[in-house]
């Protein structure tokens, strides 16, 4: 077993213990603090890659990313770099920041400390042809198969729902429709999509980086 594999295996063992609390009125009272903090602490909402998500938020901020898109297998910086070289510089900043000591407070610091290394890469974003910095965590960052019903049960109804269609400028492929279910003043967005297996299937989660970082670092 290589060192990377060993770390990965260890991380997988640690993750269940390190995940946010399971929701449920009897077993786990709703977390204290704002809605974003509540969301970040509900175990049902997140997946095995959650520690890396928590661990990376500060690094995204350091790399100048204002928003991150959390897909099932990938965390994507929202900065649309025009060239691969530009994005590579952003990725270098991100990598350097991620190598710094763990920050955060309380439970979040514990989660971050359990994070296994993810894979940082620059990838082309199909919708607009830009290049993005990405982090592939060891497991899905948010709960696989998460349904909107679970989100609403834990967080309540969204503040607003908006629909946008992303027309790929390059191809004629089926238009991507994203429905944003907005929480925490826009700091947290659950997106459903016409590409998802079901209408209430959470396709992606979008986090505002500064607000998320403030929540993670709050005592």
């Amino acid at each position: 077993m290589t060192r990377v594999q060993a770390i990965g295996a260890l991380g997988a063992l640690l993750v269940p213990a390190m995940c946010p609390r399971r929701a449920g009125a009897q077993q786990t009272p709703a977390p204290r603090g704002g809605l974003l903090r509540t969301a970040l602490l509900h175990r049902e909402l997140w997946g095995a890659g959650y520690p890396q998500l928590v661990r990376s938020v500060g690094a995204w901020q350091a790399a100048g990313e204002q928003r991150i898109i959390v897909a099932p297998d990938l965390i994507i910086g929202a900065n649309p770099y025009k060239s691969e070289a530009e994005a590579a510089r952003g990725a270098a900043q991100f990598r350097a920041a991620l190598a710094k000591p763990v920050t955060g407070a309380g439970e979040f610091r514990t989660f971050a400390a359990a994070a296994t290394p993810g894979t940082i890469a620059v990838r082309r974003y199909g919708l607009d042809g830009s290049y993005r910095v990405t982090l592939a965590p060891a497991g899905p960052a948010f709960a696989p198969g998460l349904r909107l019903g679970v989100v609403e049960k834990l967080l309540g109804k969204p503040e607003r729902v908006t629909v946008e269609t992303k027309a790929d400028e390059n191809s004629e492929r089926r238009a991507l429709t994203l429905t944003d279910h907005v929480y925490a003043g826009g700091a947290l967005v659950y997106q459903t999509s016409n590409y998802a297996p079901a209408p209430d299937w959470v396709f992606r989660v979008v986090l505002q980086v500064p607000a998320t970082l403030r929540t993670l670092e709050a005592q």
Binding site: L74, I76, Y125, G126, S171, R204
Partner: peptide, 9 residues
């Protein structure tokens, strides 16, 4: 045609 998380096909 399948689309990945980067919306690449």
């Amino acid at each position: 045609l399948g689309v990945d998380s980067m919306i690449n096909a």
